[in-house]
């Protein structure tokens, strides 16, 4: 067909036609077509899993609220699902969780931030090369190990200082949860601080600022949203922490703000029920889904807040 359009170039056209076969795919085209489908399948699995989890969580929660009034769940101050009279007020578990989380954040945010400032502003390259991997190892320690660390190391120390405290207490577990999330606060804050352009630091140094002044008045404010985001993520991580609190904080749902008390967190309650011989289909069994859904909503909102903050800090400079 083309030959008609270009009368003079017959030999060239023939050449092109001869070459045509090289445009055919000589390799295995089945591979090329099936691979994307397979990869999509892999991506879909994780999405479906999430959807499935959320579905089960909320249908079971729905069934639970068929038996227990929602009003009792949010208004009662007692959580006693395993003995009569059964009461399902979420507040004791919520306060236990919050107590642990607040203690953990009081430990992790100042220490993590200080470590991040050191790593980002002061540490010579060689020191950084050693400390960062150690922090990452710390983040990889199984939480059950931290749990026993709390029970067999932290608690005895607390009991030496305060002899009246029981073996299971919120303080010990809270401190150790805090230690567990230090690497997270440190590493994310350090990323945010390292992302502050060098030119900003130079500008401040050139005005006669000391290293500490640059760190505190230029780098930290410039990285502030990132630091806040890391703290929120750490907060949400502390809320969801399970093993440490199960091992070291006790199993006493109690509406209290006293760190020396034995308490129970939402996660620890779920563990207690799932490990015990609570029959499937009972109200007690259903209650773990209601607690799980509460937990899910809290961490979900916190993660969204953290992401929003992290997005904002990118626009700061």
């Amino acid at each position: 067909m083309r030959e008609e359009g270009i009368p003079s170039g017959k030999t060239a056209i023939e050449g092109i036609q001869k070459d045509k076969r090289t445009f055919k795919n000589s390799r295995n085209s089945i591979m090329d077509k099936t691979m994307p489908a397979f990869l999509l399948f892999c991506a879909v699995i994780s999405i479906l899993t999430t959807v499935g989890i959320v579905y089960i969580l909320f249908t079971e929660t729905y069934h639970f609220f068929q038996k227990v009034p929602f009003k009792e769940f949010i208004a009662s101050g007692t959580w006693s699902p395993l003995f009569e009279p059964k009461q399902f007020g979420i507040w004791p578990l919520l306060s236990g969780t919050l107590l642990i989380t607040v203690i953990a954040c009081l430990v992790a945010i100042p220490l993590g931030l200080a470590a991040a400032i050191y790593l980002s502003e002061y540490a010579p390259k060689a020191v950084r090369k050693v400390i960062k991997p150690i922090l990452e190892v710390l983040a990889g320690v199984p939480t059950i190990v931290y749990g026993y660390f709390a029970l067999t190391f932290m608690t005895p120390i607390i009991r030496v200082l305060f002899p009246d405290v029981g073996i299971f207490n919120a303080l010990s577990a809270g401190i150790v949860v805090g230690i567990m999330i230090i690497p997270m606060v440190c590493s994310l804050s350090e990323d945010a601080m390292s992302a502050v352009p060098r030119s900003l630091r130079d500008g401040a140094y050139a005005l006669g600022a000391t290293k500490f002044e640059v760190a505190l008045k230029i780098v930290v404010p410039a990285a502030f949203s990132g630091i806040v985001a890391s703290s929120v993520l750490a907060f949400s991580r502390a809320i969801g922490e399970t093993m440490i609190v199960t091992v070291a904080a006790g199993a006493t749902p109690k509406l209290t703000a006293n760190p020396f008390d034995s308490i129970q967190t939402m996660t620890a309650y779920i563990v207690q029920v799932s490990l015990g011989d609570t029959p499937h289909g009972t109200v007690e069994y259903g209650s773990i889904f209601a607690v799980g859904a509460t937990l899910f909503l809290i961490t979900f909102v916190l993660n969204i807040v953290a992401q929003y903050l992290a997005k904002r800090f990118r626009e700061e400079y």
């Binding site: 130079d202 500008g203 700061e316």
Partner: peptide, 19 residues
């Protein structure tokens, strides 16, 4: 620091602080 107070500097890229 005192030296840098006496010897100011302006850089290649404008580098205002995020303030």
């Amino acid at each position: 620091e005192t030296l840098r107070k006496r010897v100011g500097m302006v850089f290649q890229q404008p580098n205002p602080f995020p303030k």
